[in-house]
């Protein structure tokens, strides 16, 4: 099995108010079958043995679905591979002797908590503002009484695959959260179940998004390119359309 050695430049920051700096670490004889996070585990084990504090980074399922992990590796959200979370990137994607910069997501709306861990609760607050269908437990109708054309169901599903990792914000030059918000708006606006709250939902979610301090979308497409689930930019167009329809089309109950 092949092994490589890499130099890591890792952002270390003790707490939210600490100023932070890059530290250099050497990862020697790393098996290329290791995942990137396993490589960080090895580095951390060594740091602990040396009596130093390990690098704090967020991770959980390590199979690309929970959305916990998120590192800006060598200038890319989730590292060098397309459609892949950093937990699923393996060391074979790096070269022997390479220097790897590891940075946290950078955005005003995602303040750093420690080292590479950021606070993404802004996403939760956006969902809390309206990213749901109001249906109390028990009040649902029989599932098959709501037929949904497969093509629409598939589109809604594609949008619903968002894992909320924040890579879209991290990669966007404006730290905009439009891809995240648009994925949820699209998912629910396409389904018949989501119609009752369709306009209310989009207005509230956009209000919250703006209040959180994310930047404005300038349609560069970086979010789509770096999204580990390849959420489509067309969702953002739909979000725009839904929002403008909600705000600009007069309705009888607008008073």
């Amino acid at each position: 099995m092949a092994t490589i050695s890499v130099t890591l430049k890792v952002w270390r920051q003790k707490s939210r108010n600490d100023s932070g700096r890059f530290e250099t670490y050497f990862a020697k004889d790393i098996n290329t079958e290791m995942s990137f996070l396993e490589m960080l585990d090895v580095v951390n084990e060594n740091l602990i043995r040396e009596g130093k504090e390990p690098i704090a980074f967020e991770h959980d399922c390590r199979e690309g679905i929970c959305g916990s992990c998120g590192l800006y590796v060598n200038g890319r959200a989730h590292g060098p591979l397309k459609g892949t979370t950093i937990c699923q990137v393996h060391m074979r994607s790096f070269k022997d002797g390479e220097t790897i910069y590891v940075e946290p997501w950078r955005a005003k709306a995602f303040p750093i908590i420690k080292d590479l861990i950021v606070d993404r609760s802004a996403f939760d607050r956006i969902i809390q503002a309206g990213g749901f269908i109001s249906v109390d437990t028990g009040s649902a109708v029989e599932a098959n009484s709501i037929p949904i054309p497969k093509a629409i169901a598939d589109l809604a599903f594609e949008a619903a695959t968002c894992i909320g990792c924040g890579a879209c914000v991290a990669a966007c030059k404006n730290a905009s959260a439009m891809l995240f918000v648009s994925a949820k708006v699209t998912h629910l606006a396409l389904l018949p179940q989501g119609q009752a709250e369709r306009y209310r939902r989009v207005i509230k979610m956009v209000e919250q998004m703006d209040a959180e301090g994310f930047g404005n979308c300038s349609n560069t497409g970086a979010c789509e390119a770096e999204c580990p689930k390849s959420i489509s930019l067309t969702n953002i167009a739909r979000l725009n359309r839904e929002y403008l329809a909600a705000r600009l089309v007069p309705r009888q109950y607008d008073n």
């Binding site: 952002w11 800006y72 060598n74 200038g75 940075e103 990669a171 970086a222 390119a225 770096e226």
Partner: peptide, 10 residues
């Protein structure tokens, strides 16, 4: 970012 490879995504 210290290193940002925006050319890869836009």
């Amino acid at each position: 970012y210290q290193v940002n490879k925006a050319t890869e995504n836009s």
